[in-house]
Nucleic acid binder design. Sequence first.
DNA 1: TATTGTTATACTCTATAACTATA
DNA 2: TATAGTTATAGAGTATAACAATA
Lengths: 164, 164
Amino acid sequence: MTEPTPLAPAQLAAYFALTEVASLLQHAVEQQLRTDGGLTTPQFQILARLNATGGRLRMTDLADGLVYSRSGLTYQAAQLEKRGLVSRTPGADDERSVEVTLTPAGRDVLGQVMPGHVELVQRLMMTSLSDTDIAALNDVLGRVRDHMRTAPPRSAAPRAAKRA
Amino acid sequence: MTEPTPLAPAQLAAYFALTEVASLLQHAVEQQLRTDGGLTTPQFQILARLNATGGRLRMTDLADGLVYSRSGLTYQAAQLEKRGLVSRTPGADDERSVEVTLTPAGRDVLGQVMPGHVELVQRLMMTSLSDTDIAALNDVLGRVRDHMRTAPPRSAAPRAAKRA
DNA sequence: TATTGTTATACTCTATAACTATA
DNA sequence: TATAGTTATAGAGTATAACAATA
């Protein structure tokens, strides 16, 4: 009775398929970003997020949606600043905060990277998908994402066994 | 004319949803594996793969499907051997090879970890999915996976810009 | 006191290249 | 010569905890 309901074979297959697709995709993307722009995935995510939101964000807002700890974000921001792709300035209104700004050089690198990135996603992921498939993915994965964002992170995990 | 066809908004959304779900899931799984069994994700993958294939595999066969470089696999196998979860012995037929065997202790740790793992996947991913959804995921992601496995890894990536 | 961000530290993972040994 | 695996090395990423400064 302490056993959770086992995963049905179809559920297992879906879980594995998701895992494997994401892993293969991430690997290919990493390679492409490094080759085309000398960027790591987290660095690209930061630049892309900045670009998508007007080019300037506070550290805290930048962290939203990204997986980082604060120190991890500080580290990545420092890397990007070293390369001149981003600048950090004290926040205008709140003196505690730091505003991260995408520099022209940062935009250039994004411009260098995006075509290959789009092409890669097209070729790897979209080639075998119809519009209907894509709508289905959006529907299903969108629901999973919303649920995951809502779900209690970890404390609710029941009956953790003692360490080995 | 050098620009690839841009991703349609629905395609972008599907790409992001996949990325985000996988990232959140992976993060939660890492946490669970560490808490319940002191395992990292790659270590768990190795143990699970061994368990699923009868408990014994050559290093090379073990590497199949996992992303590692050979040295990376050696490293992980060494970690697992230190903890006694796995043993390494010279190959029976081919003296060059090494056979990795899941030990009883290794099975125990898997047993400690699996219930929480299944429960997590149930709670995070399956809660919001109907049987139809799961079938759709298998269909769509299965096709993407097959295509990715087939696709030319990287050399075919066109027009890489010079580094920044 | 709570929040924003940085720093110090330590650890895990990964990859490349050089190397050993067997086929 | 090719294959199986290890080792040495070096670098990148991440997290935790302690810290400084502002709200």
